[in-house]
Design a binder for these strands. Structure first.
Lengths: 226, 226
DNA sequence: GGTTTTAAATTGATATATCAAATTTCAGGT
DNA sequence: ACCTGAAATTTGATATATCAATTTAAAACC
């Protein structure tokens, strides 16, 4: 049964959201971090017992993971982890595709108040290069992407992107720990902001796509080295 | 409780795949076709009873629908249908984003044997304009997109696109019933094929995106009129 | 000893029961 | 009549039990 016997610890008796969402996060993180390896079979009873819960919320969590493509059910046989470097890259490409579509829509629909916020954020990020720490810089980073999401008015695309992304807070932490990456991020963000402010959907889409792919490849290289 | 009392009929005692997948398809189609309206609350026990099944497979199906953004759970209150014209358009945009990313990758990785198949298919589609019926034309259409998917080598993106798409066989049937649409489809497919054959990722991506959006808008207009 | 057959164990799929939060109902008070 | 709050009801969340397909074990047979 592989080396996954202690890849997951029992859930604490206190949890914020519902049990199934909590478990979903646990299993998902275990897969993405490699503690549950590709090809490994997930035994529902085992896993539920290990987590100290019943199979009902676990089954729901596994269903979502299947929809996200992290596990694959063999009919009447069981559920297997399917995640490797190639899929990680494709997930990054999916994020690039969706995020750039959002940027495109934002460039079409952006309102004057959004423009003001974006300009302000760009200034903050640029000055932040020298004044704030990495965590604060990441916060600015996420606020920037959020402003674009808001401006696009695309609630569905936004949710879709959040679900399939392997970009967690931790992943950003890894890439933006390099000073050069922080500098590049500001440069690219500024170019994207300008394209949106200029109402240039084609340019905004292209710049966003290249930005996500470039920083994404950087991240993939990092995790593959570790 | 809304007009949804007979929006879903009990599942037949025989079904191909698992019960949960079957139920997932039923509920999903009911939402996309409008038989289950946006804002309607889904009562798990009611719905399970109506379908003649237990709540376990239904809960799993609802979880997948949530991941796809067709229903939204209110914490500790229930699950509500969320689907409207705006979201339908965003789903189409998501398909455009992912499909165009696939086309981009295909243009990077396409092999000579793929090129041969694509050229052949283009010829078939062009002659098919005059010789085959709509169903056969749609089959050619789907084969063309499949060849691009194969050439891209992007299994994850491909699965992702299939899951979120509202483009079913029926939707294609609607759009391609117009002769002008079939003509346009061939024109656009040929341009896309040429871009991929020429190993031009930027062009392939743009043409595919525009193709999906244009025909998608066409479909959305049609369903909104009906 | 090796192959086939059959019985036991495993396990995902489904059904049912229990629990607790949230809503509704209704009695009691002003 | 109109609040107020407690009891009953509803219902999603969770747990447990049952079922059937699959795999494994073992026994029977050649």
């Amino acid at each position: 049964m592989g080396g996954g016997d202690n890849a997951l610890l029992p859930v604490a008796p206190v949890f914020l959201k519902s049990l199934r969402d909590h478990v979903y996060g646990l299993v998902r993180d275990a897969i993405l971090s490699g503690r549950l390896k590709s090809g490994e079979k997930l035994n529902e009873r085992h896993l539920a017992g290990q987590l100290g819960i019943s199979t009902t919320p676990l089954k729901e969590a596994l269903r979502v993971l299947e929809a996200e493509g992290l596990v694959r059910p063999e009919p009447r046989r069981g559920i297997y982890v399917t995640f490797n470097a190639g899929q990680a890259e494709e997930m990054m490409l999916a994020r690039a595709a969706i995020e750039s579509m959002i940027a495109r829509q934002a460039a079409k629909r952006v309102k004057d108040e959004d423009v003001a916020v974006m300009r302000e954020l760009i200034v903050e990020m640029r000055t932040g290069l020298e004044t704030v720490d990495v965590l604060q810089f990441i916060a600015l980073n996420e606020r920037f992407h959020n402003v674009i999401h808001e401006a696009s008015g695309c609630g569905y695309l936004r949710r879709l992107q959040g679900g399939q992304s392997i970009y967690t807070h931790a992943a950003r932490l890894s890439v933006l720990s390099e000073e050069r990456e922080r500098f590049l991020a500001v440069e690219e963000h500024e170019a994207i902001a300008n394209a949106i402010v200029d109402r240039d959907p084609d340019l905004a889409e292209r710049l966003m796509r290249d930005h996500v792919i470039r920083s994404g490849e950087k991240h993939l290289v990092r995790v593959s080295q570790a």
